[in-house]
């Protein structure tokens, strides 16, 4: 394994990636009174706002709609934060890159690791909503399906890393990419079924293709199959019957993750030498 160039590089740089990610997590909320608690509070408050707003807009008929909404939102928020921070990471560490021999890919890699840690904390913020629903609806939402979320996390991370490598390298050459990407993210978010359900849309073939080509759609779908469907799927008699998430969706997620990473690495390698000169 260590003979493959990419893997041997990651193995060599493992300490640097770890230290930079660790430093990021620590400095994230430095100077705020509540400190580290913000890592959990931030997604929690965010979700509370969404819940209050959307409960009254769409959620009247489905009591579990809040769970549907939060699953999509939590995942897309993690993707947004991770890639947006990766984008700036190489330019932001200009000083370090020009004074030490350190491979530039380490910075987006560390940012996505930090992003995954933050994502794990934001999952904790789902807990109060699940407890609330369990109590008010009189069902146990904590089924074993939840554990299947873990299976998709590596694929999600690989996809973020691929995007992070691509964006951070491109940002060195186009400093307005930040603003462009912010617009793209907004568009991307609305193309991903977060607030709405695909089955409620009257999509033609083209619309269906667009939705299917969106990797985030598959990640969100799998994530929901674990958390939301696991709790709310009903059998023929109309009773709650937890179902397993689909293996096909998981397979597509891994295809997106590995594919995205390969494209990201290829793009990064092509620009690698120019980055240090241009930065």
């Amino acid at each position: 394994m260590k003979r493959i160039p990419v893997i041997s590089a990651v193995y060599r740089d493992r300490n640097a990636i770890y230290e930079i990610a660790r430093k990021d997590v620590k400095t994230q909320y430095r100077g705020s009174v509540l400190g580290f608690l913000w890592t959990i509070l931030h997604p929690l408050l965010n979700m509370l706002v969404l819940w209050i707003i959307f409960r009254n807009l769409f959620g009247k008929s489905d009591p579990y709609y809040v769970l549907y909404l939060l699953c999509g939102n939590i995942l897309f928020a993690a993707f947004r934060a991770s890639t947006d921070q990766s984008l700036r990471s190489i330019v932001g560490n200009r000083g370090l890159l020009l004074r030490t021999k350190i491979s530039p890919y380490i910075f987006p890699a560390a940012k996505t690791v930090t992003g995954m840690i933050n994502f794990a904390y934001s999952l904790l913020a789902l807990l109060p909503f699940m407890i609330y629903l369990s109590v008010t609806q009189g069902v146990n939402l904590f089924s074993y399906q939840l554990a299947f979320v873990l299976l998709v996390l590596p694929a999600f991370w690989l996809f973020e890393l691929g995007m992070g490598l691509f964006l951070s390298a491109l940002y060195v050459f186009f400093r307005d990419l930040r603003h462009i990407y912010a617009v793209i993210l907004t568009l991307w978010m609305y193309l991903t079924p977060i607030f709405y359900k695909v089955e409620n849309l009257n999509l033609d073939d083209f619309g269906r293709t667009v939705i299917n080509c969106n990797p985030m759609y598959h990640f969100v779908t799998y994530f929901r199959e674990c958390v939301y469907m696991g709790a709310t799927a009903k059998n023929a008699e109309g009773l709650l019957a937890p179902t397993l998430p689909s293996w096909t969706t998981l397979g597509i997620c891994y295809l997106c993750g590995v594919g995205g990473l390969i494209l990201g690495i290829a793009f990064f390698m092509a620009l690698k030498r120019k980055i240090i000169i241009r930065i």
Binding site: R12, Y18, I20, G95, I102
Partner: peptide, 24 residues
Amino acid sequence: AGFDMEADAVENIYLNGAILGFSR
């Protein structure tokens, strides 16, 4: 060289060491 100006000395010693290939 190899320092993050926002971080303190303790963090920077570990960071600098990690860049040179040393574990915590």
